[in-house]
Every structure is written in structure tokens, then in C-alpha cells.
Design a protein around this nucleic acid. Structure first.
Lengths: 223, 223
DNA sequence: CCACTCCTCAAGTAACATCTTGAATATAGA
DNA sequence: TCTATATTCAAGATGTTACTTGAGGAGTGG
């Protein structure tokens, strides 16, 4: 029991999983897949890579056990192997955010200035939803809303928000949410709504964190 | 807000942290450092690598923000940057264990057959400690016990256990613990004690998990 | 069966990672 | 200042990773 070689092999196997997350494009894939299953074509557009390269990265994730597949006709859908994968991804992301100094700058470069962006926590939002005095808007792509969303949330993808502001009930605060704390959609939504004189905040994180916290969700059974 | 290049850079930065954990030797370093700070020389012996290579790996971990250093005379001590690093490491390890089929075999090759090895959970052990009807033995190296241990635990490094069995109070169950679920010391301790007809179990995980669960610990202030 | 779509695979190139060896640096103590 | 100890740095051999391009396989619908 306990020889060097066997220990090295065991820890090499643990490291293989970390290595699978150790590439920016694969991290983006995990972040998108945390919203629900998607097929290769969509994923390649999401991460801005060729289909071949996306397929390669997905295979790396699959052989590390992080994602699984199902076929539906000519399409192959990828999904995360389990909720644990979300746990590991968010834990890694949080470590990076708290200890890697560059992250703040890079996040600011991607998300823009957040100092005037009002946020709302999960617990408070859950209360406000129960009280019924808030409109929750899911600004992710429609397919992600369909795969699962915060209870009662209305799907208005960010591209369609400008055209739909007038249909939102007046005099009620709007809360926008999207994929997570480093997703730009909800930020853009809040900025747009504020320009139109609507009271609006963003959920501080996103759908995967809400789901992980066991807060109420629902799924559009539109298949 | 939200251009491709900025998003790629942000996720590359997240991935850099995963990449730092994406090497078996660095994973072993994190696993050891989760027990408390150590200097380079000790760490190089722990992971079975040259001092130069260990120093190189530690620098990789440091530039990912996972570890920090302090100098004491000619020695440089490394420690984890925060408890979040333990969270990320355990989350990754658990994902690997649940989805990477090889892990079971590799763990069995390193740890040996565990089917006859009785374990005890954290909650039960905490109760038994409070009730006072158990002897808790910390079989990690003495320096790790000194850096922090389960409340009331006695330090008997695994190499010294055979010589000290006779000093353990008779007719009381012994619980051995070490670095975590993939640490071999407590397994070896339980096997040794059972051969000597002592009632013995191992804690199902180890000190870092106990600490993380906010269960009572103490530190030998022997500096 | 054929053409089409979706995805995977293979080959190739440039960049990066791991480990070894030996030299350089920093501190402590004489 | 000199020497010893602990650690880091630099150079270099070898393997691995990321992406591109173009070919191949699997399912669908005419």
C-alpha cells in the first residue's frame, strides 16, 4: 500500500480533470453547458471557434468525464455529467476571482463599469418573487430559458429586449438575470432599462447558482 | 461591452487557475498544503521530486494565486492562499471520483482493498468526541498535527504507531485520520490496529474536510 | 440510393509544459 | 568577510496542446 508510482498515477488522474478545465474555450463551454444541454453547432458559435475545434474540446471534456452526449437525429447534444461539475466550476471561478489579480481588470474590460449597476441577491429575489412585486426577466437565449429558468421568469433574450420594454408591466421593478456573475447579458439589460427610466437590477449571479441553491425553478416542457 | 476578445481573455484567466491544478505533482502539493504550511525541502520529499522541480511547480501555483509564501530565516514556507483553494480542490477531486472511471482502480492500487475497512463519518465522530468514548489518533507527520488537528487528537505518525499501540487506553475504540479520503496513512493504521485486536475505524475523509465543516479543531502553539 | 447536414477524425504546425543539470542568489552564523 | 544552507533561475531535451484544413462517417429525407 502506498507506493510512489501508484500515488502519482492517482493524482495524475485527478489532475486530468483539472487539465480539462484548464483551457479558456473549454471553460466557456462548461459555462454555457451549465445552462442546459446544447448541440455542437450552437456551442461552436457560443465560443467563437470552428466546429472541428469545438468538437475536439468537447471530446476532451467527455474523456475527463465532465460531459455526456445524446444523439437526436443528426444532432449530438452535450450536457454536463452532473451538478457536481457546476460545483467544481464555480469553486474554481471563485478562487480565480479572489486570488488572481488580473481577473478584476479582465472582467471590467469584458463587462464594463459595474459601479453604478445595482444588484440583488438570491435570497432577496426569492422573497420578492414570493411576494409578487417584481418582474423577473431571463435575458439568455430562448433555448436556455426553455431548458430551465427561475420560477415565473419571462424569456426576453437581450437582443429582443429593446423592442419589448413597452410590454413589461409598468411601475414594477425589473430584475434581469443570465448565465452567472461574469455574463454580460443582464448588465446590458439593466443599462438599457435604466436608460428608459425603468427601475431595474441584475441578479448578482445567474441561473446555475440559483438552481444549485435549490431555489424554485421550472422547465418549459415544449418538446 | 461583451466582445469576443475580452471574453476569451477573461475565461483564459479562469482557466489558468485550473491549469495550475492540472498536473499531478501540483495536485499532490495542494493536498499536502491543505494540511498546513510547509517549506520547499519538505514538499519536495512529499511529492518525490527534485527541489528545483518542486520550486518550479510552487511558482506555478503561486502565480495562479493558489499559494503564498513567507520567509523564516533561510527557509521559505508555502501555504494555501485561502480556504477557498481547499474548496476548489475537493470539488475537483469529487468530480473526478464520481465521473472518471479509472479513479476507482487507481485508488484501489494505491490504497489497497477497502472493503473490510470500517469508516466513520464526520458527524458521528464529532458526537463520539463530545461523549468522550473514543480515542482519536492523528497519523499524519507530526508537523501537520502541530499546524492544526481535530480537537483532542493525539499525534502518532504512522511510522511510530506500531511502537505506541500499547500506550493507547484499552477497551476504547480508536479512530485514525489523516489527510483526506485518498490518504493511505489512516488505512494502514486501521489495518495495523485490527491485527493487534483493537477496535479501530478511519475517519471517512481527513483534516481539511473536518476544518472546512467548521468542526472543532485546535493548534499546538509550540513556536 | 443519393444528396445533405452534422459531427468526428487525421495530419500538420507552432507554441507550451515538464523535468534535468548546473549556476546564481539570499540569508544565517562564524 | 567567508562558508554553509535553502531556494530560485536558466538552458535545453522531449513530449504535449491548440488550432487549421480537408477527408470520413452517421443519420435524414427525397
Amino acid at each position: 500500500m502506498g507506493d510512489r508510482h501508484a500515488k502519482d498515477q492517482l493524482f495524475d488522474a485527478f489532475a486530468e480533470v483539472a487539465k480539462a478545465l484548464g483551457n479558456g474555450r473549454r471553460a466557456e463551454l462548461i459555462d454555457v453547458l451549465a445552462q442546459g444541454e446544447r448541440h455542437v453547432d450552437e456551442l461552436s458559435a457560443e465560443i467563437g471557434q470552428s466546429v472541428a475545434n469545438t468538437s475536439f474540446h468537447l471530446r476532451v471534456l467527455a474523456s475527463a468525464g465532465l460531459v455526456t452526449t445524446r444523439r437526436d437525429g443528426t444532432r449530438i447534444y452535450y450536457r454536463l455529467a452532473s451538478a457536481r461539475v457546476v460545483d467544481a466550476w464555480t469553486a474554481l471561478r471563485d478562487v480565480a476571482a479572489s486570488h488572481h489579480e488580473q481577473i478584476d481588470e479582465l472582467a471590467a474590460a469584458y463587462l464594463g463599469d459595474r459601479t453604478h449597476l445595482e444588484q440583488i441577491g438570491r435570497a432577496e429575489l426569492a422573497e420578492r418573487i414570493a411576494a409578487g412585486d417584481v418582474v423577473v426577466v431571463d435575458v439568455r437565449p430562448a433555448v436556455e430559458h426553455a431548458a430551465g429558468h427561475i420560477v415565473g421568469a419571462r424569456s426576453i433574450p437581450i437582443d429582443e429586449l429593446a423592442a419589448n420594454v413597452k410590454d413589461l408591466p409598468p411601475d414594477v421593478e425589473v430584475v434581469a438575470y443570465c448565465r452567472g456573475p461574469y455574463c454580460v447579458f443582464a448588465d446590458d439589460a439593466v443599462r438599457l432599462l435604466r436608460r428608459r427610466r425603468r427601475a431595474a437590477r441584475r441578479l448578482e449571479d445567474g441561473f446555475p447558482e440559483w438552481q444549485r441553491a435549490q431555489l424554485p425553478i421550472e422547465t418549459s416542457a415544449v418538446s
